[in-house]
Design a protein around this nucleic acid. Structure first.
Ligand SMILES: [Mn+2]
Ligand SMILES: [Mn+2]
Ligand SMILES: [Zn+2]
Ligand SMILES: [Zn+2]
Lengths: 132, 132
DNA sequence: TTGCTAGTTTATAATGGTTCTAAATAAGTG
DNA sequence: CACTTATTTAGAACCATTATAAACTAGCAA
């Protein structure tokens, strides 16, 4: 199991549930965006045992804290997460409520000229809303 | 009353409640960011009669639809609105949960090179998260 | 002025995503 | 194994937001 060490190194016990969630999240051809509900469905369809919704929330938040997942700032009634944790930006298709990755080369470098006293920049995120 | 015509021209009846909310939102030295709860408090402190929470929600959404308010894409348990409806970007101070306007000149032009078939860009929003 | 009608306000209930609780279970350690 | 601490879990609680449906009001025309 390739995720056992990853979890141990993060101080997270490699439980059956966490390992299964790892497989659903990270054993994929490409990264993807998801809500908790979508992840719950994906887990249901890929594994036989049940994982409680509370555990899914707990695990997603634990992984986010460890930097294995990112939250995407977007106005929605559900929180969106991203398995692509590199710095990148997004299209948001308003009609289909779908996020699409933008490469940094699609956006170009962003240089924030203004400084706020005593604060430093943690992240810069661009959201490009799309309509028909 | 300077807002009566503005509302009529938008197809919104200039009710007492809407006019009072207009005053709280737009009779200000500068634009500002707010959540519904913050707006509710501000209304309470500035007017004598009561405006129901449902009306505050209705009015904010009506004004948003007419373009008098903007929603700011940010991950929070509460939705943030902006009385500054020009195209502009934001700092988000994670510790104080405060938004700060960035002028376009602080960010520079953003040129999205990638196109999505059949879609056009509705808005481009940059969120710069700040930490200590 | 007086009705009429569609729009608006309101208290309150319902919704639903997320978090909390506390008991059961499992992992790590020696 | 014995022990401690972390994790899982079902279900309750939370709370921002939306829906409901009845009372009220603005606009308009007779
Ligand atoms: Mn979180
Ligand atoms: Mn809205
Ligand atoms: Zn992404
Ligand atoms: Zn702003």
């Amino acid at each position: 199991m390739k995720y056992i060490e990853k979890l141990r190194n993060s101080g997270l016990r490699p439980t059956k549930q966490r390992l299964q969630i790892c497989e659903v999240l990270f054993d994929t051809e490409s990264t993807f965006h998801f809500t908790i509900n979508q992840l719950e469905q994906r887990i249901k369809s890929k594994i036989d045992n049940k994982i409680s919704l509370a555990t899914i929330y707990n695990t997603v938040h634990a992984f986010e804290k460890k930097g294995y997942l990112k939250q995407i700032p977007i106005n929605s009634n559900q929180t969106y997460f991203d398995t692509n944790v590199t710095d990148h930006h997004h299209f948001y298709d308003l009609k289909n409520e779908k996020l699409i990755d933008l490469e940094n080369s699609d956006v170009g470098p962003i240089n924030i000229k203004r400084k706020i006293n005593g604060k430093k920049i943690k992240s810069i995120e661009v959201l490009v809303k799309l309509e028909d």
